[in-house]
């Protein structure tokens, strides 16, 4: 199993190298410092969202409200600076994480306690949270918060880097590493896989499935909140529409990253690499002379290719295991 997953992640890396190589041959400028820097910044935000989404998908759940939650927290950061331009950055970040976690808790409670399917719950909250975002903007009359209204240190943090590595990328790498470690080494992490693999059996094994799913929604929400604040810090211009449509890009990244959509398998590293791959493809298209309006179609095609590959590998693997077993018995 590990070798399969490993090959899955190396598969994404190979695809990534191929995309980068082809693009760099067409236009060596693609590998310029600034280009790579921007690419990683964009990918980092998606990777944060994908890390949280990956946890949910492993438990056979999904969160479609991520784009709206991200928009809401990004808008809140802007509003906090409007109230007080000298607001300490850490307060804004923590407030974003808390707001995201609260949104996650609402999703989680509806899924885990009210037992409504996650797809339906989060489709509903996708509209509700976005609606709140717009309502807030219209009630305060603030359609847009601009960079000059925010704290300079906040903006510096958003675009800054340490030893050439963007701050946002560092954060994403740390988050992915921590989640990967927790998933692999802690009972509660392993239990998420069990819940996604067979929910009834998980309950019989004594796993508190409701509590685990709820917690996963809260954690994922917190990460989305963090991503929203970082988005504000990086772009410096916020309106109530931030993050619209991001949910599909995130789910695509997770699936391309090899996380089974019906739960039970996949890794957070794969999801993050999926985010990086899709972002890279998006940046490579204009350089390759593909008009920007093809971007969505290419994302979709990548998703379909990834799913077909998974399916083929799965069928082959099952057949092989069956054969080996029969031989072992004979």
């Amino acid at each position: 199993m590990t070798s399969l997953l490993r090959s899955r992640e190396s598969g994404i890396v190979i695809a990534l190298v191929a995309v980068v190589a082809v693009t760099a041959i067409v236009n060596p400028g693609f590998l310029s410092g600034q280009g790579v820097h921007d690419l990683f910044l964009n990918a980092s935000i998606i990777a944060l969202l994908a890390a949280g989404q990956c946890l949910l998908v492993i438990t056979r759940n999904i969160d479609l409200s991520v784009g709206s939650v991200m928009g809401l927290t990004a808008y809140m950061s802007g509003q906090m600076f409007l109230g007080n331009q000298g607001m300490p950055m850490i307060v804004v970040i923590l407030a974003g994480i808390v707001l995201g976690a609260v949104c996650g808790a609402i999703n989680g409670a509806l899924v885990a306690i009210a037992k409504v399917p996650a797809l339906v719950v989060t489709l509903g909250t996708l509209y509700v949270f976005r609606g709140l975002d717009y309502a807030w903007a219209s009630a305060t009359g603030v359609q847009q918060v601009n960079a000059y209204q925010m704290s300079p240190s906040f903006l510096e943090f958003g675009s800054g880097s340490v030893l050439g590595v963007p701050n946002l990328t560092l954060i994403a790498v740390i988050v992915v590493a921590v989640i990967a470690y927790l998933l692999k080494n802690f009972r509660s992490g392993r239990e998420l896989y069990a819940i996604g693999s067979n929910p009834d059996a998980a309950r019989l094994a004594g796993i508190p499935t409701g509590r685990r799913v709820f917690t996963t929604f809260v954690i994922s929400g917190g990460l989305v909140g963090l991503a929203g604040v970082l988005h504000a810090a990086y772009f410096g211009t916020i309106n109530a529409a931030v993050g619209s449509g991001k949910e599909l890009a995130v789910v695509a990244a997770v699936v391309v990253g090899g996380v089974a959509i019906f739960g039970g398998s996949g890794t957070v590293l794969g999801a993050a690499l999926g985010a990086l791959l899709l972002t890279t493809i998006t940046s490579a298209l204009p350089i390759l002379g593909v008009p920007a309006f093809w971007q969505r179609a290419v994302d979709g095609a990548a998703l379909l290719v990834a799913i077909s590959l998974d399916r083929t590998v799965m069928v082959r693997l099952a057949a092989r295991l069956q054969r080996e077993r029969n031989r072992a018995r004979a």
Partner: peptide, 26 residues
């Protein structure tokens, strides 16, 4: 049988009660 098809044999046997080492890690 109530198995987890995505997990291996050992994880199936010990799910929810894996032996722990330092730091409550599996």
């Amino acid at each position: 049988p109530t198995r987890f098809p995505d997990l291996n044999v050992a994880e199936n046997v010990f799910m929810g009660r894996q032996p722990l080492r330092k730091g409550r890690r599996v």
